[in-house]
Design a protein around this nucleic acid. Structure first.
Length: 227
DNA sequence: CCAGACGTTGTT
DNA sequence: GTCTGG
DNA sequence: CCAGACGTTGTT
DNA sequence: GTCTGG
């Protein structure tokens, strides 16, 4: 699963990595959690590639009572075309989540251990996602998005069974271009990252609480008591 | 036909 | 225990 | 994922 | 909205 992540690169760097003409300013974030506003890259109304802030937790457009519907944080890549909640977004509303790393927990009850997963150079990378625009009968609107997961590669499988789908830069255009409404050209992109792509490190349980969101979360375990 | 669901993950 | 909120 | 709440009515 | 279950 992927239910917490970071976005710490400067906006200008994110903009250039994702080929954006412009990008709003935002602060570094070390503990992005479900239901929070989250930045995505998508193809905008006039075909331009854009950055947008939406709610993390996809709300399908046919939902009548948002309060009575589950928060959809992850979508399984293997079943995207079958699920009513994702099928349409997979065809027409694909997006990318810029991130610098994400957290996973290992261990059983009472001994849960958080880990931080990032690239070797702490570089920003892209995770595959879907977005929706929900409209209520009272005219209210909400944009939301979900992260696509697949089976863990062998690096990650030491701690977890699933991982977010990484899209490499040479595939951004085909992933984000939804004009055909066809998915056969992009399903091949939904595979685990190469084993050398990520590294793991244990981090403090400070990350457990979404209210803790500063850079101290990335201190290696064993040093957090040295404040 | 209408009613009701529509999701993922980890853990037991 | 189970659901909601972040 | 974890943290935190978990309820109703009438009255001010 | 669309599919499944009754």
């Amino acid at each position: 699963m992927c239910s917490r992540f970071t976005l710490t690169s400067k906006p200008v760097l994110v903009g250039s990595h994702f080929g954006l003409a412009e990008i709003d300013d935002f602060p570094p974030r070390y503990n992005i959690a479900p239901t929070q506003p989250v930045g995505i890259v998508r193809t905008g109304y006039h075909r331009q590639r854009e950055f947008a802030l939406v709610r993390w937790g996809l709300l399908p457009d046919w939902v009548k009572d948002p309060g009575a519907f589950t928060t959809l944080v992850n979508a399984r890549a293997e079943t995207l075309t079958q699920k009513p909640s994702f099928r349409s977004a997979f065809k027409y509303r694909r997006c990318l989540f810029p991130m610098n790393g994400f957290y996973e927990w290992s261990g059983g009850k009472g001994e849960r251990q958080p880990h931080y997963i990032s690239t070797r150079g702490e570089a920003v990378f892209a995770v595959a996602g879907l977005w929706e625009n929900w409209m209520g009968v009272d005219g209210s609107e909400m944009e939301s998005a979900v992260i696509i997961t697949t089976r863990a590669n062998s690096t990650l499988s030491a701690i977890h069974q699933r991982m977010p789908v990484v899209i490499e830069a040479q595939h951004f255009e085909s992933w984000l271009n939804c004009t055909s409404g066809k998915t056969d050209e992009v399903v091949d992109l939904l595979r685990p990252a190469d084993n050398s792509f990520f590294k793991l490190q244990q981090v403090s349980i400070l990350v457990n609480n979404p209210q803790n969101s500063g850079s101290e979360l990335l201190r290696p375990v064993g040093q957090q008591e040295l404040f």
